[in-house]
């Protein structure tokens, strides 16, 4: 598989580490239901057959975390963005 790193360009998946679904957000630790929310955040994952946005780490390249749009049925990749949310990935 080849992933389009927004900084480095298209690279072989060997350069990346996989994390998983990019949708879950770390819950508010001060919320009254934090224990349940963190349980869901850490353990509960959707496993869709189809399009998913997922986190990959370009550890052997620019060391950016990226969000890849992938179809789990075909491995077709629609694109990738920096996980930090900015266009430049500058954590800004």
């Amino acid at each position: 598989m080849r992933l389009p790193c927004p900084y480095c360009g298209v690279r072989d998946a060997h350069e990346f580490s996989y994390l998983g679904d990019a949708a879950p957000r770390r819950p508010d630790p001060a919320a009254p239901d934090a224990a349940d929310a963190f349980h869901d955040y850490v353990y509960l994952r959707d496993n869709p057959a189809g399009a998913i946005r997922e986190l990959w780490y370009h550890g052997a390249g620019c060391r950016r975390w990226i969000v890849v749009d992938r179809d789990t049925r075909t491995h077709a990749i629609a694109g990738a963005t920096f996980a930090s949310g900015s266009a430049s990935g500058d954590a800004s």
């Binding site: 580490s17 994390l19 770390r26 986190l55 780490y57 550890g59 060391r63 950016r64 975390w65 920096f82 996980a83 930090s84 949310g85 900015s86 990935g89 954590a91 800004s92």
Partner: peptide
């Protein structure tokens, strides 16, 4: 890798 995750994904 974990620290980069914290910086880029959790608390950019």
């Amino acid at each position: 890798q974990h620290l980069e995750f914290c910086l880029q994904v959790l608390w950019p």
